[in-house]
Write a protein that binds this DNA or RNA. Structure first.
Lengths: 223, 223
DNA sequence: GAATATAGTGTATTTTTTACACTATTGAAA
DNA sequence: TTTCAATAGTGTAAAAAATACACTATATTC
């Protein structure tokens, strides 16, 4: 009839050509010294999604990020102290937007750190399952909905966009076919601007044309 | 930190060429006399999915049905008495398997009844939203995963199968293209048996070849 | 045996997806 | 200032998948 109520958040960020996930190191039993997904209790007078936003803000200093509910986990054995229901969300961050300040040390959390997806250690509780499921969901989702843009800064190159797809799908894509397809969608705005600070031919920058983008995908409901 | 914990279940059944949903009429405040999704509290020592199975069994007498978690709803205002978190599931029933005995009258539930999807009245709480979302999920899901079979008896005709697709997708499909595609998948077993009791040419019956079917779709994870 | 109602079938066209390799441009190093 | 290194940027042909479309076959009922 009653349960403790928490939310956990799989925070994805894309940089250096790789998808990363933000983990925190626990400083409390159970699972002291283990890495875990950022999560916390939902206050009794707080909306669930606000709790997620709070966690995100506390951990990264960012607001207005892409959020999607993943799944509710309520197993009786997921926590030694009895049932703790958690609703897992995943968040996609445009890392470049601001320099992200990672959460400082607290009594219960030693540090927060970005891990490339393939270097994530074993996690506390059932968080390995949660992470795995969110990657799978992301993978299915990116095939229908261009959520890739949620992981990129406002201005990006086509190669960066392709790298996001590749790191989520876990396979390489053909450059020419990828560009042809993306440009064909018609929601990319070609800018009169190129990349800066690279030691080779600079790539053209693109922007998402949100109006055209939404028109095309307004029927793809997110939940 | 704490919340009341319930599950609600959108029970889909297919008969007479139409997708139906099972609703119960409330006999208790709030929303007395309104129709609602079957749902109930999750006992403190009970696994969430077992609670859903319990509701299904109590309402229909069926076990071993297809179940999939839809979404967790936890809005502070969804219930007048304060937050009641509900995890919504949807179930697909093979109605023909057994004659279904609908739940008898109880103190809190006057009756249970099948409604064709387009004749569902306004529902209690946020159940209209829940129902709408599950139809949308079903629609997205049927495009990738052949869950259609979960709604049909063991032996079925291609026309029945097509009707399931059409009623979930909400549009008509081309008969020849549909058959071509389904047969091409290779997981339909053609039986030496035809429909009985129809006043016209009897259609051939088919069966799902579960082995081939699973081989093809084992990578499509369900959650 | 005529009427009715649904079953069952094939081909041509269009669209989408895939496979594939070279030239262009920039900054850095020699 | 030339060369090197690194990535940007581009088109075409073939294969596969999706779509459009209409008639004959068969069982039942009257």
């Amino acid at each position: 009839m009653y349960t403790t109520f928490t939310v956990d958040c799989v925070i994805f960020g894309f940089y250096e050509g790789e998808l990363h996930v933000l983990l925190t190191e626990r400083n409390e039993y159970p699972f002291k010294d283990w890495w875990a997904l950022p999560g916390f209790f939902v206050n009794n007078d707080e909306e669930m999604e606000d709790a997620v936003k709070r966690i995100l803000y506390e951990n990264t200093g960012l607001k207005d990020v892409f959020l999607d509910q993943l799944y509710a986990f309520a197993g009786l054995k997921r926590h030694p102290q009895g049932r703790i229901l958690t609703v897992a969300y995943y968040a996609l961050l445009q890392l470049d937007k601001t320099k992200i300040k990672l959460k400082p040390v607290t009594s219960y959390m030693r540090q927060a750190k970005w891990f490339p997806l393939n270097k994530v250690p074993d996690l506390a509780f059932d968080h390995t399952t949660i992470l795995k499921q969110s990657v799978e969901k992301l993978r299915r989702r990116i095939a229908n909905t261009p959520i890739a843009f949620e992981l990129l800064p406002d201005k990006f190159t086509l190669t960066q966009l392709q790298l996001v797809y590749e790191s989520i799908l876990g396979r390489e894509l053909d450059k020419r076919n990828f560009r042809k397809k993306m440009i064909n969608y018609g929601f990319l705005k070609e800018l009169d601007e190129v990349q800066k600070g690279v030691a080779y031919r600079a790539a053209r920058l693109y922007k998402l044309d949100k109006r055209k983008f939404l028109k095309q995908f307004q029927n793809t409901i997110t939940f």
